[in-house]
Amino acid sequence: MFRNRLSPFLLVKSNRKALYNHLTQATSSSSRVAREETSRFFSTGIVRRILHDFRSSPKVLLSLSLELRDFYNAIPGQYVPSLRNVSTVQSLNEKSNEGLKLLVNGGSHAQKMVGIWLFGSAAWVFSMVVLGGVTRLTRSGLSMTDWKFSGGLPPLSDEEWLQEFEKYKLSPEYKKFEIKNEPPTEYAQPRVSPYRLAAHLTSAFVIYSGLLWTGLSVVMPEPPAESMSWVKGAAKVKRLALPVSLLVGITAVSGAFVAGNDAGHAYNTFPKMGDTWIPEDVLEMKPLIRNFFENTSMVQLDHRILATTTLVSIASLWWLTRKVDLHPAVRYLIGSTVGMAGLQVTLGISTLLSYVPVSLGSAHQAGALTLMSLMILLIHTLRKPSPFLLKSLPKVAKTI
């Protein structure tokens, strides 16, 4: 009876082949009876005889998948983690999906191509963020006299350089030095507006996050879920991970205000700020709110507090989820996030103590985006599976 009910699932050639390989692998160490049953099952001609019946009733797929799970569990000592490798592939290619919304409906090849495009775009934005950090640290952006969308070649002759210098004399940077009559030293150079810099960096982070999330949704429409126990564990972790990811984003934005105010050059000591824990001038600006965005002392103090809180929060996330029943991929991501958070704090302290060299400063900015990437991947992996997949999951993941 089971063969008669399951045979329609094998009408599509790709599904028949995938399921055969899946069953053969699952029963490789099973009894001889189970292997013979699998062989007889695929040697019958029932598949062709009930083609019409299956096409007229595609929703029978769900009930057949549940029976297939019971068939696996009935084999002594054997367990295939889930039907996800079979049922998900089928659900991606059929219009009878229940609760699963695909961003790309052109098949696995189309999903792969779109995924490559999205991940490539995200990598390009990542490189632009790192290059932007180098541009800021070397103050290359302040020397621009004009900006052309199509780009252009730098000056190649003495006459062209003189023309560019005349344009530079009209810039706010040159006028400020001319009024003060002082040479442009490292600490006297004009600052980029911290508000504009923060908005610029935040928008880059948002674009990158959107590309990464969308790419993950295309290539991984279902989260890794092998049992209801793991799904429930993922839901518990998600409630803790969401506020932590928000804290990571806020800390990254505060770093933009540190860069915009050149706060990294103010107190190059750690853990104290100079000789004190809290400088006396942290609230000297009026109105009070300006201190959190324009006061060098307060901006650096805020970033120190936020960075330490982020590290403690991520470590606490790992500690609180040690005994939660989770998919191995989720547990690995949590461990990787803890390691990256520790590395990011180490880079930040090293950058501060070394008076913000270009190499460490750009690495610290890249580390912030890497840490955010891991948090995005973790949140994406903790999503709730579709109703179609939930109905096919066992209560507890069994092992061989």
Rank of each mutant, 00 (worst) to 15 (best):
L162Y: 05
S209R: 00
R139Q: 15
Q365E: 11
K180T: 09
S63P: 00
A252T: 15
Y174F: 10
Y267L: 07
L343K: 06
R290S: 14
G115T: 01
V231T: 00
R196W: 15
Y355D: 15
A259L: 12
T309I: 14
S140A: 12
G141A: 13
V312G: 06
S229T: 00
Q78N: 08
K180L: 13
T381V: 04
L352M: 07
E182G: 02
S140V: 07
E284L: 13
S29F: 09
R331L: 01
F270C: 02
M298I: 04
N85G: 13
L360C: 12
W319G: 02
I305W: 06
G361Y: 08
V89G: 13
V206K: 05
P279R: 03
L353A: 06
T138I: 10
H327V: 04
P328Q: 07
P328C: 05
S386P: 09
P183E: 10
S28H: 11
S143C: 12
G106D: 03
Y168D: 02
K236D: 06
I46W: 08
L246V: 15
L360I: 11
A263L: 08
L377K: 07
S143W: 14
L326H: 01
L131N: 10
S28A: 14
T214L: 05
G120T: 05
A266W: 12
